[in-house]
């Protein structure tokens, strides 16, 4: 059976799930019980997306809550032909970008202040868990992490990222290059193993 992520990738219609369809219909009528069910069902998924774009778990939870407020406010506009998870994912990412813009306005970011701390137990990349990957990504400065995630995870172009984050396109390219360079430094053992043909994914 395909996981939820695979369903999204394959474009499988979530509406084959009659229960979800009913829940969404009730959410359109502001039924609190249905809202609670929807929230509990998709909380984990939304949080896993939010954690990619936010270093602090508390910030990620705030983003999730913001996103669900938007979901419940706009659920009547949700296109039933599309999978619900994709719609939710877009909302979570947009909320994260909004939050990033707000933080950018309110705080001065010093890129040099971020410290690269190699993972204590890098082992091989095939055994890396999501938590370890997140920890490694969190070593990147906010802007680099955001650009890397939007480019590599969501597939946005540099032009789109530039307009979303209010930065020049060239800056987006530079941040991505720097992010990749720093990440390469965080996996020396893996690459050594890989190069020596000892590690195989």
């Amino acid at each position: 059976m395909a996981s939820f992520f695979e369903e999204i990738q394959l474009g499988v219609d979530n509406y084959r799930n009659e229960g979800l369809r009913e829940i969404i219909r009730k959410c359109c009528r502001k039924d609190k019980k249905s809202q609670e069910i929807l929230y509990k069902q998709f909380y984990g998924y939304a949080l896993s997306i939010a954690l990619i774009y936010n270093k602090q778990r508390d910030d990620a939870i705030d983003i999730v809550n913001d996103s669900f407020m938007k979901v419940f406010a706009e659920i009547s506009k949700f296109d039933p032909e599309k999978p619900f998870k994709i719609w939710l994912r877009k909302i979570v990412i947009n909320s994260s970008i909004d939050q990033f813009r707000r933080r950018k306005r309110n705080s001065f970011y010093d890129e040099s202040s971020s410290v690269l701390v190699p993972d204590q137990n890098p082992t091989v990349i095939s055994s890396l868990t999501a938590g370890e990957v997140l920890r490694l990504l969190n070593q990147l400065p906010d802007i680099q992490k955001m650009v890397f995630s939007l480019y590599e995870m969501e597939g946005f172009s540099h032009e789109e990222i530039g307009s979303m984050l209010n930065i020049p396109v060239s800056s987006s390219r530079v941040y991505l290059t720097r992010a990749k360079k720093k990440l390469r430094k965080l996996f020396p053992l893996y690459f050594d193993i890989y190069d020596a043909g000892l590690g195989k994914r």
């Binding site: 896993s48 990619i52 370890e132 990957v133 995870m153």
Partner: peptide
């Protein structure tokens, strides 16, 4: 590998 690790992960 990062994509794989994160996308299959659900909190």
């Amino acid at each position: 590998s990062i994509r794989d690790a994160l996308e299959t992960q659900e909190e």
